[in-house]
């Protein structure tokens, strides 16, 4: 059993080696800690923002998506969307929003965990962190597509507005509205976390792989 754990978490650094090359071994930890913090802070910031511009709304309509909630002119946008038969925004991604905070905390813990694992398994554990921002956008696209393509055929404007998929990022046009969607600071922080995790992994591997190789001479 101990052997299995040893295989999984990899070798420890001898104390004299650690003292000699402190930065070499601490750097991955620092980088990954920043990644953790980025993810934590991102919970409190909008991940995605959309502005709707139309002559009747001189200040535009704004909606901001946090990982767990929608804020902004949601009621007004829903009010407009009911004309074309789109379901209320709150109906979208309910499962994702319910689980998001717990999931992000798990990701943060996963990074923490990876620090103590000095084998290539570390990469597997933090893989969700790396792909998380991309997953967010793909999921968002899925919902935009689902909502835009499944309009209520009995809605007032069902005959004049054909099903459509609003772009997840960038500019779209629907009726008199121009939609401008962009990544929010939360998602940018998640991207930072993703990149920092990759950098952290490279440093991690650079620091511990020699130790690993020393313990287990290459068999091939």
């Amino acid at each position: 059993m101990a052997g299995l754990i040893e295989t999984f978490i990899g070798p420890r650094v001898p104390i004299e080696e650690l003292r000699r090359r402190r930065f070499h071994y601490l750097a991955p930890g620092v980088v990954l800690s920043i990644a953790r913090l980025c993810l934590l802070v991102s919970i409190f910031l909008p991940y995605w923002m959309m502005e709707l511009q139309a002559p009747q709304y001189p200040d535009g309509l704004h909606v901001e998506a946090y990982v767990n909630r929608l804020v902004g002119d949601v009621a007004e946008i829903d009010g407009l969307n009911h004309y074309i038969g789109m379901r209320p925004l709150e109906d979208a991604a309910q499962l994702e929003r319910t689980l998001s905070i717990a999931m992000l905390i798990v990701l943060v813990i996963a990074i923490e965990g990876a620090l103590y694992i000095h084998t290539k398994w570390a990469a597997l554990i933090v893989l969700p962190v790396i792909v998380f921002p991309a997953f967010f956008l793909i999921d968002l696209h899925f919902w935009m597509h689902t909502f835009g393509q499944n309009l209520d055929p009995a809605a007032p404007l069902s005959s004049s507005i054909k099903p459509f998929t609003p772009p997840v990022l960038g500019v779209g046009v629907i009726g008199q509205f121009k939609t401008i969607a962009s990544m929010g600071p939360g998602l940018l922080l998640a991207w930072c976390a993703s990149l920092l995790t990759i950098v952290g992994l490279v440093l991690h591997r650079r620091a511990y792989r020699p130790l690993h190789d020393l313990k287990e001479p290459v068999t091939t």
Binding site: V30, S33, I34, L37, C38, V41, L45, P185, L188, C192
Partner: peptide
């Protein structure tokens, strides 16, 4: 100190 650095980075990003 490193945490403080992270905080500053995050603020600048925001």
């Amino acid at each position: 100190l490193s945490l403080l650095g992270v905080g500053l980075t995050a603020t600048a990003l925001l």
